[in-house]
């Protein structure tokens, strides 16, 4: 019988979990219908956007009327972040400044003047911006969110061999139940084989439970470190792996300190090696 269980270990992992993270503009080349791994796995379902820059030429909208501080919709949505340029006229004799004179909602494709800025109320402005072509899941591509892979479909609008930009969210937390269950078995095994006479796998001392929990956490963190290096091909893989490894060492030390009264020293060393 294990000294700890999945819910207990999960509770401890809450503090170590990574919050949901948005990743944008990952460049992925899609060839044929072959599956390509994204830099991250464990993605939030339907959090993705797959896109291409619509044109090398910026879009121009003339005579966009700005009223009060209300957002005025532009013709297109899904604008390229930071690309909007607003001028009083087409010849750009007066160029306005974002955030001081106007604000842009890039996702919705909308523009608003800022109160106290240089754009007079009820004025028409000229707007240049870049925009994305957005692709549809199912019709143009398929995604496996848990494993973080993407592939073109056979009838995709995405040109074969094109390098697209992919946005997605990495799911909050990385506590995978299967890994937790595995490390509980491993930690229990190591502890049981190190127990002093008088203690057995059925012992219910709190120290054993606490020690087992920290040892399971240490093994889990070690597993996560390896996972970061194998599944996370992003630029943060190395630093994340190091953080997990550092946690693993810390939890391992705590575990064996707590377990000290219950185990024999030479068996601890043997157990630690395993």
């Amino acid at each position: 019988m294990p000294f700890t269980d999945l819910p207990t270990v999960r509770k401890h992992l809450v503090a170590a979990n990574i919050p949901e993270t948005r990743v944008e503009n990952v460049r992925i080349t899609l060839v044929g219908t072959y599956s390509v791994a994204l830099p991250h796995a464990n993605l939030v379902n339907n959090s993705e956007a797959v896109k291409l820059i619509a044109s090398d030429a910026s879009s121009l909208e003339t005579s966009v009327q700005l009223s009060n501080e209300d957002f005025t919709e532009l013709v297109h949505k899904s604008l390229v972040q930071g690309s909007a340029v607003v001028a009083a006229d087409r010849a750009l004799t007066t160029i306005f400044t974002e955030e001081l004179d106007y604000r842009t909602d890039y996702a919705s494709g909308a523009l608003a003047r800022v109160a106290g800025g240089s754009i007079p109320n009820l004025t028409s402005v000229h707007v240049w911006y870049d925009r994305y072509l957005m692709y549809d899941i199912g019709a143009d591509y398929v995604m496996d969110f848990p494993s973080g892979t993407i592939a073109r479909t056979a009838g995709s609008s995405i040109p074969d061999g094109a390098t697209v930009l992919v946005d997605y969210s990495i799911a909050q937390g990385t506590a995978e139940d299967s890994l937790i269950e595995l490390v509980i078995v491993e930690a229990t095994d190591v502890i049981v084989r190190s127990l002093r006479p008088g203690y057995t796998s059925s012992s219910t001392d709190q120290g054993l439970k606490t020690g087992a929990c920290y040892l399971a956490l240490a093994y889990y963190a070690r597993g996560m470190s390896a996972l970061m290096l194998t599944r996370n091909t992003g630029t943060d893989a190395h630093s994340r792996a190091k953080e997990w490894l550092s946690l693993a060492k810390e939890w391992n030390d705590i575990a064996w300190n707590v377990l000290a009264p219950f185990v024999t020293p030479h068996l601890i060393r043997a157990g630690a090696v395993e």
Partner: peptide, 15 residues
């Protein structure tokens, strides 16, 4: 400067 501004200025050359 924004690349879009460079584009806009280039598309409106002064004569």
């Amino acid at each position: 400067p924004k690349p879009t501004l460079g584009y806009a200025l280039a598309s409106q050359p002064l004569m």
